[in-house]
Design a binder for these strands. Structure first.
Length: 835
RNA sequence: GCGAAAGUGGCGGAAUUGGCAGACGCGCCAGACUUAGGAUCUGGUCCCGCAAGGGGUGGGGGUUCGAGUCCCCCCUUUCGCACCA
């Protein structure tokens, strides 16, 4: 074989061979154990970036390892192909978004193929084609049938940059998740919603199945769902017949309620203003409070502002009338938009009531406290549970007992009830944009809102459209799209002109891979049954509460409509770290982007992958270093030269398993080499099963290369015979095939093998050969290292003790002192304690 | 503010179960080969010290024969949540 390493030629050669031999093509095979490796599908933005390279290198290492372990591997890829960037580019250049999208897909497909990932490209999908998005529409109709898709008018998040609505999940720190600098504003709009809240409890409960998901992701989802148990309590308002309902999780503190706070947007506010003695002043105050309300601001910890409405509310538990205030920190969208203020036992209420000099009254004391000794008013809010005081008939109860009794009493007397509140809101999916899935609904003057008939799907996105980016649905300007007939009464009607959030597309795409072309249903149930669940999903943490919660929701709906028989689609999730450079996330605006294709051209895909996996463990952020990739290139070169140099001479030599008598006949050098080779294989095998610290796998492979280099002289002198030498080289190349598959196959071929490594079984390490036969044990005297002794690995404790105590350095440190204790830890060390 | 993770040489990182801290790589230093070296190879490289020795995993305390690892307090960084009543 060529003595010079030429990555460009080698990588092209093997990519062609793999494709010609259909090496990555796979089919469901009942009875054969399967493994589904899934990586998050990319948005076709034009070029792959280092984050993709990292994500797909991790997935490929796993897919190749599991493949060599004998699993039937499903390893697909596709394109999250609808979305705003293409549409925005289209607006600028007055071309069609599909032009950008498909040319970007072609480009990025080429780049991924250049990376040599083991994808079954026949399964590639793109979400922007009607064959795919018709099933988004189908799911929508199924949800509509079940009341899980509905339309309502509400205040929504609006990104001025995207010119469209955002779901709550897509608002980060008051800004758009795509435009970190762009403040989200509010609009009142009619929107379609998917009722994810109907599954809130299941999304929580089923987390117990997700034992192989990172705790961090589960915690984030838990917080996002934000389930809390509490009580509704109806206060009566002075001068109004309608009760005011508040929500609290601490009804046990209600005797300490000294005010009621309303969100400035609360519907009652209008009535209060109308019947106020000073309506003008009150309205002005309300507007002032509103403008400082929580939702409208990004920076937090602003002062709490409030205004006294002049009205009072009567606490049904003790009949006390307390003032009603409007407060800027009360959220309309959580609970009822009205709360009881218990300053003694809530920090926010404490802050507010102190500022406005509202009374503060202690009604809970810590267990075991003498209530008479309790400072009242307190110096700060006591928010813990405790025992009730000054709470009428409930005094003396614990918080837990009181909450139960008091909620029960409210229900019995009709002024309240127990309730469960969630932070999660229904998923608003309407987008006032073009490049997405049309929502398959029709508005008929006679019949109202009518779903498109299933047989009439897909509702095709019309190709001829003028994109202006001016904040309303572009489809509304396409008369031939808008004008249709009512599916029910056949009279003229109008189509919905909003499109779906693209997170709908990615909520079920991984099912489609299992039978990507099926035209009669979104998925092929039988094939899904074989491949699911996804055994390993790999992607970035940034999707922890967006995609990863929507996806779980979709699966539960799919289960309920009979498509699948399980509740959770992904058994194991791995979240990789980001690729950063100079301490910052790579981005065009920061100008610190490293282009993978340049790295492929300069070093090859194998070296780029090796560097990506070597520089840090995969879950941690990886700091890009130009010098680092040079080191990876050096390593790949060394391996290449080392194997290429010997490949010819090893032709015809077999590297079989060694039997006991073969082992006994090994030379010392052979033992040393085989020990290292089997240790390396053991490390990598164990690591691939669980830990995935590819950086250490590559490091130990480097050690093997170092040993092989050290032993070159022994090879030349015949002290290492070809069979042992071949074994070590083959282990090295086999391991390398997980991380640098092209050069590995080239070297494997050079060693005389006809089949690519992916068709070879992963070798088993020999624990006996991997074992050390002599160990160097440290000897400590009073915790300080004083000597090292070499002993046989099989040495008894007594032998080790004797050897250690006989060591000259040890004797020096023992002189004049008394040995108190000698601790011998076999295989580890000797620790001598003296006085 | 609350919650989580992390903090180890000049740098990326290793130490998987409480047992030799710094594997492996980068960088640096010295040398070899060379017309040349930004190729390749060899050796060295935690700190102080000529050495013996001493010190050392963010800081302080503790448990232990023994702590990067376990416990307590503090500091810093990153991430998540941030008026969710």
């Amino acid at each position: 074989m060529d003595s010079n390493y030429d990555p460009q030629a080698i990588e092209a050669k093997w990519q062609k061979r793999w494709a010609d031999e259909k090496l990555f093509e796979t089919e469901a095979a009942l009875g054969r154990k399967k493994y589904y490796v899934l990586e998050m599908l990319p948005y076709p933005s034009g070029d792959i970036h280092m984050g993709h390279v990292r994500n797909y290198s991790i997935g490929d290492a796993l897919a190749r390892y599991m493949g060599m372990k004998g699993y039937n591997i499903l390893h697909p890829i596709g394109w999250d192909a609808f979305g705003l960037p293409a549409e925005n580019a289209a607006i600028k250049s007055q071309r069609h978004p599909s032009e950008f999208t498909f040319s970007y897909i072609d480009r990025m497909r080429g780049q991924l193929q250049r990376l040599g990932v083991s994808y079954d490209w026949r399964r590639e999908i793109a979400s922007c084609v009607p064959e795919y998005y018709r099933w988004n529409q189908w799911f929508f109709l199924k949800m509509y049938e079940r009341g899980l898709a509905y339309r309502r008018k509400s205040r929504v998040n609006w990104c001025p940059e995207c010119e469209t609505v955002l779901a709550n999940e897509q608002v980060v720190d008051g800004c758009c998740w795509r435009h970190e600098e762009t403040r989200v504003t509010e609009r009142e709009l009619e929107q379609w919603y998917l009722k994810i809240t109907a599954y809130a409890d299941q999304l929580l409960d089923d987390m117990k199945e997700l034992v192989r998901w990172p705790e961090r992701v589960l915690t984030m989802q838990k917080n996002w769902i934000g389930k809390s148990l509490g009580t509704f309590v109806d206060f009566t308002v002075s001068g109004l017949w309608k009760p005011l309902r508040i929500f609290t999780t601490r009804v046990d503190t209600i005797f300490g309620c000294t005010a009621v706070f309303l969100a400035p947007e609360h519907p009652l506010v209008e009535e209060l203003v109308a019947s106020s003695k000073e309506p003008t002043r009150l309205r002005e105050d309300v507007e002032r409070i509103k403008s400082s309300a929580v939702r409208a601001r990004v920076e937090l910890n602003l002062d709490k502002l409030g205004v006294d409405s002049g009205f009072t509310a009567r606490n049904p538990y003790n009949g006390e009338a307390v003032p009603i205030w409007l407060a800027n920190f009360v959220l309309m969208e959580y609970g009822t938009g009205a709360i009881m203020a218990v300053p003694a036992h809530d920090e926010r209420d404490y802050e507010f009531c102190s500022a406005y000099r509202l009374p503060i009254r202690t009604v809970i004391v810590p267990e075991g406290t003498d209530s008479a000794a309790w400072a009242d008013p307190p110096l700060k809010a006591m928010v813990e549970y405790g025992r009730l005081v000054a709470s009428g008939p409930y005094s003396g109860l614990s918080s837990a007992e009181a909450m139960e009794r008091m909620t029960g009493d409210a229900e019995a007397k009709g002024f309240g009830e127990g309730t469960i509140q969630y932070r999660i809101k229904d998923w608003g999916i309407s987008r006032q944009r073009y490049w997405g899935t049309p929502i398959p609904m029709v508005y008929c003057d006679a019949c109202g809102i009518v779903p498109v008939a299933e047989k009439d799907l897909p509702v095709i996105l019309p190709p001829n459209v003028k994109l202006t980016g001016r904040g309303h649905s572009p489809l509304a300007d396409v008369p031939e799209f808008v004008h249709t007939t009512c599916p029910k009464c056949a009279k003229p009607a109008r189509r919905e002109t909003d499109t779906m959030d693209t997170f709908v597309d990615s909520s079920w795409y991984f099912y489609r891979y299992t039978d990507p072309k099926i035209a009669t249903a979104p998925i092929n149930k039988d094939v899904v049954k074989y491949w699911f669940p996804v055994d390993q999903y790999i992607g970035g943490i940034e999707h922890a509460i967006l995609h990863l919660i929507y996806m779980r929701f979709f699966t539960k709906v799919m289960r309920d409509i009979g498509l699948v028989e399980f509740s959770e689609p992904v058994a194991r999730l791995f979240t990789q770290g980001m690729v950063i450079k100079d301490g910052a996330k790579m981005s065009k605006s920061k100008g610190n982007v490293v282009d993978p294709t340049e790295m492929f051209a300069k070093y090859g895909a194998d070296t780029t992958r090796i560097y990506m996996l070597f520089a840090a463990p995969p879950e941690k952020d990886l700091d890009w270093s130009d010098a680092g990739i040079e080191g990876a290139a050096r390593f790949v070169n060394r391996v290449y030269r080392l194997v290429a140099k010997h490949a010819g001479k090893l032709e015809g030599v077999r590297a079989g398993k060694l039997r006991a008598k073969d082992k006994a006949a090994l030379t010392a050098e052979e033992r040393r080499l085989l020990r290292k080779a089997h240790q390396t294989l053991r490390h990598v095998t164990e690591d691939m099963e669980e830990r995935w610290h590819f950086n250490t796998d590559i490091a130990i492979s480097m050690e093997l290369v170092n040993d092989l280099t050290d032993l070159e002289a022994a090879v030349a002198a015949g002290k290492i015979r070809p069979a042992a030498h071949r074994t070590a080289l083959e282990f090295l190349v086999t391991i390398l095939s997980l991380f640098a598959p092209h050069v590995a196959d080239e070297l494997w071929e050079g060693l005389g093998h006809a089949e690519p490594l992916l068709k070879v079984s992963w070798p088993a390490f020999d624990a006996e050969l991997a074992a050390e036969d002599e160990l160097e044990l440290p000897v400590q005297v009073n915790g300080k290292l004083r000597a090292r002794i070499r002993v046989a690995a099989s040495a008894s404790e007594e032998e080790i003790r004797t050897r250690a105590l006989a060591e000259e350095k040890v004797i020096q440190h023992l002189s004049g002192r008394q040995v108190v204790k000698v601790i011998v830890v076999p295989q580890k060390l000797v620790s001598i304690v003296v006085k």
